[in-house]
Simulated assay, not measured.
Amino acid sequence: MTAARHTANQRLQGLEVLVGEWDMEASIDGQPMGRCTAMFTWHDSRGFLIMRVDPPQAIAPEWRESSPFPIDAAIGLDDHSGAFAMLYADARGVCRIYRMSFENGHWEMRGQAGPGFHQRFEATIRGDGRLVTGRWDASSDGETWKPDFEVTYAKR
């Protein structure tokens, strides 16, 4: 018996630019905090994009204790509302849901990890889609944001 194949959702296929292996670097004010490998692959159904970030090859001492690596995530789409979501889990036992948008070279995620702890990620897909530059911000009220750290993805 052959497994049924899913029909690819065209809006979800817009994430194809992320598929592949990336060198990822996190930094604060230009100071590298960690370098690792991020991999984006389609789930067999092509209904979810899976992200895996391996433990870093290099990590700053001040980040070692709170390191979230490895990180696993699944990106999906609600075709009724057109909203993307990322389900996130990491080595610390942290599990979160981020609302996500991805269009016209702009990638954004937002979530509230608890009372007084809001997060957002804003990134730009550069040039031919082989470079992503972004930043995570934090907020206590969801209105006033301060930079947390920068992230760069360079496709291998």
Rank of each mutant, 00 (worst) to 15 (best):
T2L: 05
A4G: 06
R5K: 12
H6K: 10
T7E: 12
N9R: 04
N9H: 12
R11T: 14
L15Q: 08
V19Q: 03
V19M: 02
E21P: 00
M24L: 13
M24R: 14
M24D: 01
A26N: 13
I28E: 04
P32H: 08
R35S: 13
T37E: 11
T37L: 03
M39T: 14
T41A: 06
H43T: 01
H43V: 06
S45L: 13
G47P: 02
I50Q: 04
R52Y: 07
V53Y: 00
D54R: 00
P55W: 11
Q57D: 05
A58N: 03
A58V: 05
P61V: 14
E62S: 09
R64Q: 15
S66L: 10
P68N: 04
P70W: 09
I71S: 01
A73F: 02
I75M: 13
S81D: 07
S81T: 15
G82Q: 11
G82R: 12
A85I: 09
A85C: 10
L87K: 03
A91L: 03
R92W: 02
G93K: 04
C95R: 15
Y98K: 06
R99V: 04
S101P: 00
E103Y: 02
N104W: 05
G105M: 12
G105H: 10
W107M: 13
W107G: 00
W107T: 01
W107Y: 11
E108L: 11
R110N: 10
R110D: 04
G111D: 11
G111N: 09
Q112H: 07
A113D: 11
A113I: 01
A113V: 02
A113G: 09
A113H: 07
G116M: 08
F117V: 05
H118A: 06
H118W: 15
H118D: 02
Q119K: 13
R120E: 09
A123S: 12
T124C: 01
R126E: 14
R126Y: 04
L131S: 07
L131E: 10
V132H: 00
G134D: 05
D137R: 11
D141G: 07
D141W: 13
G142N: 08
G142D: 02
E143R: 14
T144M: 02
T144V: 15
P147L: 13
F149K: 08
F149V: 00
T152C: 10
A154G: 01
A154V: 14
